[in-house]
Design a protein around this nucleic acid. Sequence first.
DNA 1: GTCTATAGGCTGATAGAC
DNA 2: GTCTATCAGCCTATAGAC
Lengths: 196, 196
Amino acid sequence: MEPRRRIPAAERRESILAAASIVFGERGYAGATTDQIATAAGISQAYVVRAFGSKETLFVEVARRAVMRIEAAFRAAVAATDGGRTVQQRLGAAYIDLIADRGILLSLLHIFSLGHDAAIGPVGRSGFMRIYRLLRDEAGLSPEDASHFLAEGMLINTVLALQLHDTGDPDALELVTQACGGDLGKFRSLAAAADG
Amino acid sequence: MEPRRRIPAAERRESILAAASIVFGERGYAGATTDQIATAAGISQAYVVRAFGSKETLFVEVARRAVMRIEAAFRAAVAATDGGRTVQQRLGAAYIDLIADRGILLSLLHIFSLGHDAAIGPVGRSGFMRIYRLLRDEAGLSPEDASHFLAEGMLINTVLALQLHDTGDPDALELVTQACGGDLGKFRSLAAAADG
DNA sequence: GTCTATAGGCTGATAGAC
DNA sequence: GTCTATCAGCCTATAGAC
């Protein structure tokens, strides 16, 4: 690998994080290798490790970013004064926009399934609870509504992760339509993009 | 390791599958090792591989079993003629009973996050759709009700995987109570058992 | 049916040059 | 800031004995 252009550390960190989000998403924490992330980021394996200290630190940072992006998107949705739509509708649309980024979607799932891990569990718990409080206290949802909203989100996560929207199966289409409220356009194009 | 008692192959397979369900659940497919599974099953690493051909085959079998257990439990819940309770209530209770087995719960989450995998994705998709059809065609739920039921299940998965039921946080308790419909007893005792 | 031994491959991290 | 080289460890799978 020929030496790359020197780039400010902060900027390089961002591109590593972007690559890591995709690779960790596809393979999971244990399944992903620092070498795969390095290749995706266009740098050497050793540099990935050096930039973040360890693979685990890098994953925790990716996880933290994913949660922060959700919080930011929800805050914007709450703040938006969009005439016709309810807060729930704005929040739902914001969530679907966000997890059309498969890196974020899959990061979330991996965080959940590593809930018992000493390093990642706390990130997942505190992130999930911050989002719950945001829905309840800032968006003004009742505990029941907040819970329902989260439940719908978790089902969307699942059907998208399983790629049920990509099947020919009409029952799958029926389910995905129910889950996403008919707002499938984004994921169809996503699937098409992934094929090419 | 001294040679163990000779045991019929079928029986040995079951004990390996039981051990694998726990270890795969805790560490994920890539994170778990055949040696950890062997230790949990009380046999040698080589024998685990020999008994199933490969680690991947073993995982696929674990995944298949988890889905089948859910189907069986739901069929029983549908068939049960339990005076006071609705089908939804019976199904919900059956689900909560089932995923109190953390091995099954976490197996599910790992299947979801491996939805893109060539070997595991198909198992996840066909299993999920079989369960959807069961809810719709055998339990008689409308597509909307089936979708809501699944959504609630996915939220329960998440809060249990994150172990939010184990936190002192009162907000977490509020959320878990909403998600599980107040039926927390099983998970408390589970947590206590895990501590000991 | 079950084990021991080990080959062969991959991985995260470190050292050190530029 | 970035790379090459490399080590030490771990992991799956196979071979072969009992």
